[in-house]
Amino acid sequence: MTEMQRASKHTWLRLVRRLLGLIPRWLLAAAALSLATACTTGSNDLVPRKDMVGAPISAVGHYGSMIGVPEFYLNGRSGGTASGWGGGGATVCCMLLPRKVTGPVMVKVNWTTCDISDIKFVNGRAVDPSQKCKEEEHEETVPVNFAVQPGEGGSGLFVHFLPGNHVEVWYSTRFPEASGYPGPVFPRGPAPDYAPLPDKTPQRDTSSK
């Protein structure tokens, strides 16, 4: 990738994140639910195999304020981008899952992290505009955690980017920010720096599901 292409990609990502920040979270959640319904009950053009369902892909960042995910892929399919802290609203359609899960379903996750901890900012702007974030490539193959059978409905496939550069993938009827979500607890409050990344066990919601 040339420097011009890299600069264009980062400019585009900043614009997308700014636009997403203007959309109320309830509207993003409603759009995600609509997309999930369309995928799981969609036409034969979307899901031609009757033993499979389509699941929209969404991501949640647990990295903090200094590290984001400009791109990630599930089994080679683009999942979009992920904020370093929170997320879960924007979705990409779709990944095929078995309607009835009878054994482990593994996915290969490839993602890029963008670390801005070495960049000096004043009033939210980089002192040196030419300075770029430190990018690293990562790969991990993990099982999908199913809180419900895909054929029985669900809100989508949620990819969690965790400290230590690990991932967890969940299929659930609940959204990550909802009470009782079975996966890692949704990041809330001011984002920590988390750079360099610590390796720690994610928190779980212990409330009734």
Rank of each mutant, 00 (worst) to 15 (best):
G76N: 07
M106Q: 02
F158I: 06
P187Y: 08
L15P: 00
V169R: 03
C39L: 07
P202S: 05
G68I: 13
T91I: 06
D118H: 15
N44P: 02
T173P: 03
E3L: 07
H62W: 13
G164A: 08
N123L: 13
V109W: 09
L20E: 15
P187K: 08
F161T: 01
A29Y: 02
P104H: 03
G124K: 14
P163N: 06
P150C: 03
P143M: 05
K134Y: 11
Q203G: 13
V107H: 01
S130P: 00
T102W: 05
A195Q: 01
R25I: 08
R77Q: 15
P163G: 03
T41V: 01
K9M: 10
C39S: 07
I23A: 02
K100W: 10
V107A: 02
L96Q: 12
S34F: 12
P98G: 02
P196F: 02
F175E: 05
S130K: 14
Q131R: 14
Q131T: 04
C93M: 10
P56I: 07
K209Y: 12
K200F: 10
L19P: 00
W170P: 03
Y73D: 02
E71I: 02
T2E: 06
T91K: 08
K120G: 01
G86M: 11
V47L: 03
S207E: 01
V47C: 10
E140R: 13
S179H: 09
P202M: 08
L15Q: 06
